[in-house]
């Protein structure tokens, strides 16, 4: 199953609970929600979208479809910014 993992080249830091990432393209990104920072933490090891959704549902009261949609959208932003990569 396809998994995602952080790219080694990205430098990350916390700023008042927000996430600050320095990508290869030298842009900076703030994760405006704490969930974004949590997903980033989870991606320290390769994970599938379904695994991430499962872990988030254990912590937050959110239905599966909504969570799946939000996580996918967030991960797509990370992939297009080249902050994470697919790991087989």
């Amino acid at each position: 199953m396809t998994r995602l993992i952080r790219k080694q080249s990205v430098i990350s830091a916390k700023l008042d609970g927000d996430l600050v990432l320095l990508s290869l393209e030298r842009d900076m990104y703030f994760g405006s929600k704490s969930v974004g920072a949590m997903i980033w933490e989870l991606l320290e090891v390769p994970r599938t979208v379904e695994e991430i959704v499962g872990i988030l549902q254990a912590s937050f009261d959110v239905d599966t479809d909504q969570c799946l949609e939000d996580v996918r959208s967030f991960l797509n932003a990370l992939v297009s910014a080249e902050l994470v990569e697919w790991s087989s």
Binding site: I11, R26, D27, M28, Y29, G31
Partner: peptide, 15 residues
């Protein structure tokens, strides 16, 4: 998520 800020060198130093 995905706010881009300019001045990359200063951004790099801060991060």
């Amino acid at each position: 998520f995905g706010v881009h800020l300019g001045r990359p060198a200063r951004v790099q130093t801060e991060v």
